[in-house]
């Protein structure tokens, strides 16, 4: 038998970087897991971890009980039966920031209140979101030229959704809440790969 000589330079790595969403899915070996489950006639809920976690997060956003000025009166109106944010799973206003994951900055952020608002935000556990409500919290509003009012709460804490108005109508609050839900739905790696559609 003739000795076989193998030219190693002819061999190329055929594995290439996955590009499309389907290739990425195959790359994770998820297909084999699914097929194995199908052979055992098991039931499968096909989802990604991101999708499931985002669904859980956006369906039970608990706001922290804090209001700074007249926008907080509208916050009460939003939480009452007529406008009813309980349908978003948000009716549980937590008295402790440790248990909350959403903060409405509702009202004028004065210079003296600003470090307290920042402390409240830092006390909240991750993941956490902030909705800035009303002209005062967005930019300073009518107090923009004042000596004692912060020119927008986004100077001290990151803000996800801004709701304009002075104060905003409850319908505007609901629209802002829906925008935040859309944002949470598209968080994580799944959304980047296009798997969360």
């Amino acid at each position: 038998m003739d000795p076989v000589t193998i030219d190693t330079t002819k061999i190329r790595m055929t594995k290439r970087k996955p590009e499309t969403a389907l290739e990425k899915l195959e790359d994770t070996n998820l297909i084999n897991t699914l097929l194995a489950a199908k052979d055992r006639e098991g039931f499968i809920l096909l989802t990604t971890i991101d999708q499931a976690m985002n669904w859980g997060r956006l369906s039970s956003l608990w706001p922290v009980t804090s209001g700074l000025a007249c926008c907080a009166i509208e916050m009460m109106a939003v939480s009452m039966a007529h406008h009813d944010i309980a349908r978003f799973g948000m009716e549980v206003f937590r008295a402790s920031p440790r248990q909350a994951d959403l903060m409405f900055v509702a009202g004028t952020v004065t210079k003296r209140m600003a470090p307290r608002v920042k402390q409240l935000y830092e006390m909240m556990s991750e993941p956490k979101w902030v909705i800035s409500v009303g002209s005062c919290a967005n930019t300073g509003g009518p107090y923009h030229e004042s000596y004692c009012v912060l020119k927008g709460v986004d100077n001290i804490i990151p803000v996800d959704v801004y709701i304009p108005g002075c104060p905003p109508r409850p319908e505007a609050w609901l629209y802002g809440i829906i925008q935040l839900r859309e944002k949470i739905k598209n968080e994580g790696y799944g959304a980047k790969w296009g798997l969360n559609k």
């Binding site: 210079k111 003296r112 600003a114 470090p115 402390q119 100077n155 001290i156 804490i157």
Partner: peptide
């Protein structure tokens, strides 16, 4: 003087500290 902005931060004992330097407060 409206040109120099003053910021308030909380001290260790909860007292207010006023300074034109807002680096502890601002992002």
């Amino acid at each position: 003087d409206m040109n120099t902005e003053q910021f308030v931060t909380i001290g260790e004992d909860g007292e207010d500290i006023v300074s034109p330097d807002g680096s502890n407060l601002l992002r």
